[in-house]
């Protein structure tokens, strides 16, 4: 397998909303290599989340091809995709999206419930992931007992607990204060540099983007060529 982990060609996603067609993403060609850390930037509504969702196979493209980790996502069935995502992709949301009735440990254990691991192993893995994000002392805490930054770190632990190759983050610091954001960004960098995770991160924050190895811009659904920015950008 080549070290190209994400490769899309003419990837297009259209939404029909109130009889109007919205082209959220048009003919995007994106290539991401193993161990890369790419930041996606662009104005609101430019298609950043859409590109991320298609990469995680959370939605199907209208046209174009997408190959992630050697799998042609268009050819996989829904259930095969669910299994594939569980194993290979971690996703981090802007609004954390922890399950409120579960503790930090149980939240992190959740993706492992879909694997063949036994209860003891699952707990062990989940605790390890939580220690990795610096929350080894907070295993039994519920989301409402944690700060925003801590919640996001639990969410990151949940995203990496299955040891996926790719970590996709959609504005992971968007809901955080500067200090928590800094901690989360440091954590994501560590995951990239020390654990070799391939990372694609959507962000509005130029400071956050600087943690990435390179930045790609989107504008009005178009993925701009490497190195170029939208005209009125900063």
């Amino acid at each position: 397998m080549s070290d190209l982990v994400i490769s899309t060609s003419k990837l297009t996603k259209e939404y029909i909303r109130d009889e109007f067609k919205v082209v959220a993403l048009r003919d995007a060609d994106l290539e991401v290599r193993r161990g890369d850390f790419v930041a996606l930037m662009g104005p609101s509504g430019s298609g950043k989340s859409t590109l991320l969702h298609l990469t995680a196979a959370m939605d199907r493209p209208t046209s174009g091809t997408i190959n992630v980790l050697g799998s042609d996502l268009n050819s996989l069935s829904d259930s095969a995709i669910a299994r594939w995502r569980n194993r290979h992709v971690g996703f981090v949301f802007q609004s954390f999206n922890l399950i409120p009735v579960l503790t930090a440990l149980e939240n992190v254990e959740l993706p492992l419930k879909l694997t063949h691991l036994k209860k003891g192993e699952r707990i062990q893995h989940a605790a390890t992931a939580l220690r990795l994000v610096g929350l080894g002392e907070r295993l039994g805490h519920f989301p409402r007992q944690l700060s925003g930054g801590e919640e996001q770190r639990v969410a990151i632990a949940r995203a990496i607990v299955t040891d996926p190759d790719i970590l996709l983050c959609d504005e992971p610091t968007g809901n955080l204060d500067a200090r928590s954001a800094q901690e989360v960004l440091a954590l994501i960098s560590t995951l990239n540099k020390e654990h070799g995770k391939t990372i694609v991160m959507v962000t509005h924050d130029p400071h956050a983007a600087h943690h990435a190895a390179r930045i790609r811009y989107l504008d009005k659904g178009e993925l701009l060529p490497d190195g170029s920015k939208p005209q009125d950008w900063n």
Partner: peptide, 9 residues
């Protein structure tokens, strides 16, 4: 969220 984590329909 559950589906994002890989839960099947």
């Amino acid at each position: 969220v559950l589906k994002t984590l890989g839960f099947q329909a």
